[in-house]
């Protein structure tokens, strides 16, 4: 790879551009759509030349949707807030429960540890709908249906196995002698976990947290069944754009853009830790 000719560089540039175009085009198109009215979106042939308007965003933020059939209340902003709260809280709970568990599974080989870890992973195998039916009944009986608490609990089905299995691998990659050295130096196991294992696994924890957040954010079916209107996340709330007078493409596009932003911001922020993790190669001494 040391000697790349100009032609090779040019070809590589073209190839990368093609890939980026291919993957980014739908998002680019949606961003364009979010600045158009339904009429300009639906004209044939479509064009990228139009008078940009921010009325879609205004409608979402003020919560009033003006359509040809009259005005309509939408609570997109509260959906967005629900998504943010549900995802953050689920990831927080998932990290608090999952990281120590991952450490236990990674470091202490106890009887049945492998089986328990696998059982936790197997939650991801079951189709959510299959789980949901009995869960809905139980939740209604014990009063957890349509509560944030109940939703966060159910979200652990998505978040916990993911965090557990990713972080466990990072803990296993830390040479045991580094922790042994800290113990022998006179520190308790808990202080060793906190001061040595946690900082060294931090890139893994950041990656797992980010992934878990995205998975929780994008979840649809749990919230659809278990949450009522005031606790719905954006994924479910977007259904409101399908109105009696047609689908509000402009608002849908603006909603998509707004709901991408938090995850995008988080990914950009967490990227630092992910890259740092890759350059922390001196662990082996």
């Amino acid at each position: 790879m040391e000697h790349t000719s100009t032609l090779e560089k040019a070809l590589r540039g073209v190839a990368i551009t093609c890939v980026i175009l291919f993957f980014m085009f739908p998002i680019f198109w949606i961003v364009l759509m979010s600045f158009q009215t339904n009429e300009t979106i639906l004209r044939v042939p479509p064009s990228i030349i139009f008078d940009p308007t921010i009325q879609n965003y205004v409608a979402l933020i003020t919560g009033r949707l003006e359509t040809s059939a009259g005005s309509l209340e939408i609570n997109f902003m509260s959906n967005l807030w629900n998504s943010l709260f549900l995802s953050s809280a689920s990831v927080a709970v998932g990290l608090i429960l999952g990281v120590p568990a991952a450490y236990a599974f990674g470091r202490l080989k106890f009887r049945g540890s492998e089986d328990i870890a696998f059982t936790l992973l197997s939650f991801r195998f079951a189709p959510p709908l299959l789980v949901l039916l009995p869960l809905t009944i139980y939740f209604q009986q014990i009063g957890l249906a349509d509560t944030y608490f109940g939703l966060i609990w159910v979200y652990q089905l998505i978040v916990l196995p993911l965090i557990l299995w990713i972080v466990r691998g990072y803990f296993e990659d830390i040479p045991a002698d580094i922790e042994n050295a800290y113990r022998v130096a006179g520190h308790s196991w808990f202080s060793t976990f906190r001061k040595v294992a946690l900082p060294l696994a931090m890139p893994g924890i950041a990656a797992a947290g980010l992934l878990a957040f995205i998975f929780a954010w994008n979840n649809f079916i749990f919230a659809l069944v278990l949450a009522s209107a005031d606790k719905q996340p954006v994924t479910v709330g977007a259904l409101a754009f399908v109105t009696a007078s047609g689908i509000q493409y402009g608002q849908v596009a603006a909603g998509v853009v707004l709901s991408i932003l938090p995850t995008l911001a988080l990914a950009l922020y967490a990227q630092r830790y992910l890259v740092e993790g890759l350059s922390l190669g001196a662990v082996k001494g």
Binding site: D177, I178, N180, R183, V184, G186, S188, L200
Partner: peptide, 27 residues
Amino acid sequence: PEDRGIGMAFQNFALFPHMDAHANIAS
């Protein structure tokens, strides 16, 4: 191990990669 009052040097050094030499020695 922490209650045995032992000093140990490991074959592969086992230094704490996220701490500088001072913090390593001071631990």
